[in-house]
């Protein structure tokens, strides 16, 4: 059903099709005209996050083969990178209320900087943060928890993903109330902290009794809740990658599951970023 892939033509579609299949016939694998529409989409689709990184780094062509001189001529990197964006992003459209000149400019600046400085993503970078939006059962009720992970290199050549932190409204256990000043009085030590009982009975505002440096560790809380059976982990609903491996930039990559050439793992947002790793993680 070839019409499927060509039904919603956008400005990038035709050049991409010509390029993918001219590339294929050039490499001597004559599958262009006979290929089913679905297979055409499958080739163009960025099927894995790994493939996204390979295309971003200009290491592989649409078929996963190493980029060669012919491909470089037909599809220079400045044409390849724009294809990694979600073309259906309404901010990129020239018309419409969601059109954003700022975003279009940011995108162009990002692409220009990547090309000019030949910037690459390190496949195993700690600056690739995966957000696994997960379904959990909290006290039997379905809730969403965002689990953030990145990769750790073990003994030089081995890799694993590790959990950095978790976020979700189930961890918003404290209420903010500025109408009352809550504290443990200065003389409490002399009464062997009788007031401690009073403070810890104030269950909604416990954070007010902690030191000014107190920062809740949600991951420990999450592990405890799982261990105690308060939370039951179900499954990952969706994964979004936050990439801060390109200096000065942050961009998001997520999977667009649609039957079009512009599908699979695509850039869904890009913005300037000057935050440190820990600050960035806090703001996610």
């Amino acid at each position: 059903m070839p019409s499927l892939s060509f039904r919603n033509k956008t400005s990038f579609t035709l050049p991409l099709i010509l390029l993918i299949f001219s590339g294929i016939s050039l490499s001597g694998q004559n599958i262009s005209t006979k290929q089913k529409a679905g297979e055409e989409i499958f080739i163009a689709r960025i099927k894995q996050f790994n493939e996204f990184v390979a295309r971003f780094n200009y290491k592989s062509d649409f078929k996963g083969n190493p980029v060669d001189s012919l491909f470089r001529v037909k599809m220079p990197r400045e044409k390849m990178i724009p294809l990694l964006f979600d073309m259906k992003d309404l901010r990129l459209k020239n018309v419409g209320i969601k059109n954003s000149d700022d975003f279009i400019k940011t995108k162009s600046d990002f692409i220009r900087e990547v090309i000019k400085n030949d910037l690459l993503i390190n496949k195993y970078s700690q600056g690739i943060i995966a957000e696994a939006r997960s379904k959990v059962l909290f006290n039997g009720e379905p809730r969403i928890v965002r689990v953030f992970l990145n990769q750790e290199i073990v003994e030089n050549d081995m890799v694993k993903w590790t959990i950095l932190t978790v976020k979700g409204d189930i961890f918003d256990i404290f209420k903010t109330d500025t109408s009352m000043v809550r504290f443990i009085p200065p003389s409490s030590n002399e009464t062997d902290f009788i007031n401690l009982k009073r403070a810890l009975d104030d269950t909604e505002h416990l954070q007010n009794y902690a030191s000014r440096n107190f920062e809740p560790d949600y991951l420990t809380l999450f592990f405890y809740c799982i261990k105690s059976g308060l939370i039951r982990y179900e499954y990952v609903e969706e994964v979004v990658y936050h990439i801060i491996d390109i200096p000065g930039w942050h961009f998001k990559v997520k999977e667009f599951n649609r039957n079009e050439l512009n599908s699979g793992w695509l850039i869904t947002d890009v913005a300037r970023n000057n935050l440190s790793f820990s600050e960035f993680l806090k703001r996610l």
Binding site: I31, K36, G38, E39, F42, I43, K47, Q48, N50, E51, G64, Y124, V154, E155, D157, M158, V159, K160
Partner: peptide
């Protein structure tokens, strides 16, 4: 099934096994 499959590079895990994904 389509005639084509995408197979990513293999990466070694901490258990010494090699991991990849085929689509």
């Amino acid at each position: 099934f389509y005639d084509i499959a995408y197979i990513s590079e293999f990466t070694k895990g901490p258990d010494g096994k090699y991991y990849s994904t085929a689509t």
